[in-house]
Amino acid sequence: MTGAAARLPDAVDDSFILRLAPQSWRPFLQLARIDRPIGWWLLLLPCWQSSALASVRASAPPHWRDLLLFLIGAIAMRGAGSTYNDIIDRKLDAGVERTRGRPLPSGRVSVAAAVGLLLVQCLVGLAVLLSLNRFSIALGFSSLALVAVYPFMKRVTSWPQAILGAAFAWGALMGWAAAFGSLAPAPVLLYAGAIFWTIGYDTIYALQDVEDDAIMGIGSTARFFGSRVRAGVGCLYGACVIATAAALAAAGAGGLALAGLIGFSCHLGWQVLALRGVDPQSGEAIEGVDALTLFRSNRDAGLILFAGLFAEVLRLSIL
């Protein structure tokens, strides 16, 4: 295994999991994105936010069991989605500088072995889903269509991030559904906000690949916005904040939740301002923060919103 293949460009530096794992496991851990935890964080956070919003609405204690199940499910299904995506995109990935070292295009994992890993991850996700109520089970299964079509969207549209957003934001519905066994305006509005958030941060992420994507004929919102990417992300983040604020209002959330929303909004605003120093043709930092770092910072943004909601839950539980 070469050094370039051993560590992928968007992986966390010096991942302790890869260091501890046997050499033969490392390509499979990379395929499941275990060395890139930001993916499962961004899949998890809408689930946690939705669960906390449900607790706020019911003035109930945190749903600890659901929060744990969502953590396990997010890690498993992020890995499954990435493995599936890599199987479909292995030939395209071979033509992109950032992705050609991935396990499948580099030949370190066979397609058959990747399919086996995909099945294992799906079984873990299924076990988590079957632990929820019937409505949540049906709702969870209904998201699979989005996951299935997403890898193909970059071949036919400049907005594949919209499909990714619809899939990644699904947890904003699941947390509420797991608590109530139904949906309401509040989680639907939270879901809309999470979609806009996902499109925005994935546009930032896609800045890393605009040059190779143009050569390969791959569509993305980063290419669509071009030199206007800062304005585009700003509009998406603005829509996210408006929809999320409406969700909190619909759930009757109080001051601590609103403080979390304000912190979340400020973080998104900082990202938009920081994009001034990012080259829209390469994603590299002209000054300040590069696109990958900005993208990864969305874990902190999402945690700020969740922290406000969770603090509101604790306040209501104590009172």
Rank of each mutant, 00 (worst) to 15 (best):
R33M: 09
R33I: 05
I34V: 13
I34D: 03
I34L: 15
I34G: 07
I34E: 08
D35E: 08
D35R: 06
R36K: 15
P37E: 07
P37L: 08
P37Q: 07
I38P: 06
I38T: 14
I38M: 13
G39H: 06
G39V: 03
W40P: 02
W40G: 08
W40V: 06
W41T: 08
W41G: 06
W41V: 07
W41S: 10
L42G: 01
L42S: 01
L42F: 06
L42V: 03
L42D: 02
L43Y: 01
L43N: 01
L43T: 07
L44R: 03
L44V: 00
L44A: 11
L45F: 05
L45S: 07
L45T: 06
P46G: 00
P46A: 07
P46T: 02
P46V: 01
C47Q: 03
C47A: 10
W48R: 05
W48P: 00
W48K: 05
W48C: 02
W48D: 07
W48E: 08
Q49M: 10
Q49C: 09
Q49E: 14
Q49W: 07
Q49I: 00
S50R: 11
S50E: 03
S50W: 03
S50F: 09
S51I: 03
S51V: 12
S51C: 13
S51K: 04
A52I: 00
A52F: 10
A52E: 04
A52S: 12
L53Q: 06
A54H: 11
A54P: 01
S55C: 12
S55G: 15
S55I: 09
S55D: 11
V56F: 07
V56Y: 06
R57A: 15
R57S: 15
A58E: 12
A58L: 14
S59T: 10
P61T: 14
P61E: 14
P61W: 14
P62K: 11
P62Q: 14
H63S: 13
W64L: 14
W64A: 14
W64G: 06
W64C: 11
R65T: 13
R65L: 15
R65V: 13
R65K: 12
R65A: 15
L67Q: 13
L67N: 13
L67I: 14
L67W: 11
L68K: 04
L68E: 12
L68Y: 09
L68H: 02
L69W: 15
L69G: 08
L69I: 12
F70M: 05
L71S: 15
L71H: 08
L71W: 13
I72T: 11
I72G: 08
I72L: 13
I72A: 11
I72M: 06
G73E: 10
G73A: 03
G73H: 06
A74K: 05
A74L: 00
A74F: 05
I75D: 00
A76K: 01
A76Q: 00
A76H: 09
M77I: 06
M77R: 04
M77A: 00
M77L: 11
M77N: 03
G79A: 07
A80M: 02
A80K: 02
G81L: 02
S82L: 15
S82I: 15
S82A: 14
S82H: 14
S82P: 07
T83I: 04
T83C: 03
T83S: 04
T83A: 06
